[in-house]
Nucleic acid binder design. Sequence first.
RNA 1: GCGCCCGUAGCUCAGUCGGAUAGAGCAACGGAUUUCUAAUCCGUGGGCCGCAGGUUCGAGUCCUGCCGGGCGCGCCA
Length: 588
Amino acid sequence: MNEVIIAALCGAIEQALRTLRESGQLKSQSVAPIYLESPRTEAHGDLSSNVAMRLSREEGRPPQQIAAEIVESLPADSPANRFYEKVEVAPPGFINFFLSRESLVLLLHGMLQDSDDFGRRDVGQGKRANVEFVSANPTGPLTVGHGRQAIIGDVLSNVLSFCGYAVTREYYFNDAGNQMRILGESVRARYLESLGETVAFPEQGYQGDYIREIAESLYKENGDSLRNAPTERFQKAAEKVISEEINRTLERMGVRFDNYFNEYSLYASGKIDEVIKKFKELGHAYEKDGALWFKASQFGREEDRVIVKSGGEPTYRLPDICYHVDKIQRGYDLIVDIFGADHHATYPDVLAGVRALGYDTDRIHVLIHQFVTLKRGGEKVKMSTRRATFVTVDDLLDEIAKGLRAELTQAYGENSPQTEPTVLERMARDAVRFFYNMRRMGSHLDFDLDLATKRNMENPAYYVQYAHARICSIFRVFYEQTGGPEIDFAAVPVETLRLLTEEKEASLIKNLGRFPRLVEEIAEKFEGHRLNEYLLQLATAFQSYYNEHRVIGDDLDLTLARLSLVRAIQTVLRNGLSLLGVSAPEKM
RNA sequence: GCGCCCGUAGCUCAGUCGGAUAGAGCAACGGAUUUCUAAUCCGUGGGCCGCAGGUUCGAGUCCUGCCGGGCGCGCCA
């Protein structure tokens, strides 16, 4: 709901409380913060306050009595008065405001002034945000689990950006660690195998088919000349191939990073050594068994942790701590890390380390998302990167595109515009993006491949897109009929908008009014899934309205009023879909 | 054993600082189209919100314990 209306009503309540205190009817002097919330059922009004219930205990009187007094004392000359047509006290003590038609008209009018920018916020204006996600080392293709993270991160970045933040999407990776060495050894083993040698495969080696493919292509290019080449040669080759593949996959999902941060750069710049030195200077680290331990137990952790192994090599914690310090030093106001559930135990150590070095970690928000379970044929697909049983994001996109192709070929025939590869690719991306962002992070995501692929297309992404396409169609028909110029909706007079007197029109306007605040809440709480939910609900409300009332009719003014409403809906759908990174087609 | 996350309709899930009669989609059943796109809409049935306590005006939501599922618990990342 519009801030102006909420502020006005809160002000009126505050005024009433003051009046009651002055007259001695209210004893308590404490200023209870006044909230207005939107009740679930329409019978409870549009905005509701529980302030009387909060005062009840201190006053020692029933909340309904207090609520009645507050309503009684609402100022007669408040600017808030034109915003509501009715105010009620409801048990057990709620004060319920019913918005006036006039305030709805003003709401819609305001939206049309904002035009395409409706919903845009400025809470992040002048602030910089860094969102780190995916961050998979180039040891293998992106799995469906990474896919979830990629979309969650990308959508949150979009929302933050829509709220005014200057956002950096960052990918952190390490191409020098243990895992990469094992990768190199794995490729080398496969390469030697293709030379006919029998070699022991590394114990923790990567077994996916892609390793064989890389080895195979090395063989094709180099013959047996790499027989005695060092592991590093194989590692570099694999890294190059896999990195490129990861980037292609991200591109397919519509995800682009602004910054790739290589762990190695922390060593090269001497920052790792600096941090070690600082840990020692501050007395937060000590040596034991030849290793360097961080006194994590002094910073809220259960146990101390090794940051440099006895061999002299740092554990992952040290560069991670260093990396976060670096992010802070780069001056971000907001730092968001997105990890999978398997990392939940590691980040508290890292944050403790950052604090130990004297930095405030309040601006760092670590988001943990639960795993994705993939279902195919009613059966769960088990995934593991090292074993060959994982399913990649590419597989997922391919499978959906293939299913859509079969579906659309049946409907439109071979070689129709609907079955062009680029179209199918876009549709698959839209579906995947919408699905991945549909659940809250804490909840496991059940990705039902059959559902996303199958013919009935109960895919929620299409439902929202369809609503948008339908609105576009209304405008096409209207302009065809009139042959006239584009309407300037910002110039539609308030009197015209007053013609919107239907129940569904009122509830649609209220619905649209929630959008700006929703965007802000998503940015504050990092709950991207609420956007999907909202859009679905708005699309449903529109479809219902569409079914009941004709937008284009004989009455030109009424038509103009309804077109204005529909335009506002279109704007919100388009902006919402754009935040999701899902296309908003004009025709389907 | 310890830590984190989850447990809501047959299935997949929402549930806005703790608010009023717990919602949606799918599935099941029944209806609507001379129409601006039927890829739509309307209706019906379906619930000890895992269990047991506690906090309070009020708990799906907060606290404690238990049960069940997922993920972790390294001088791997």
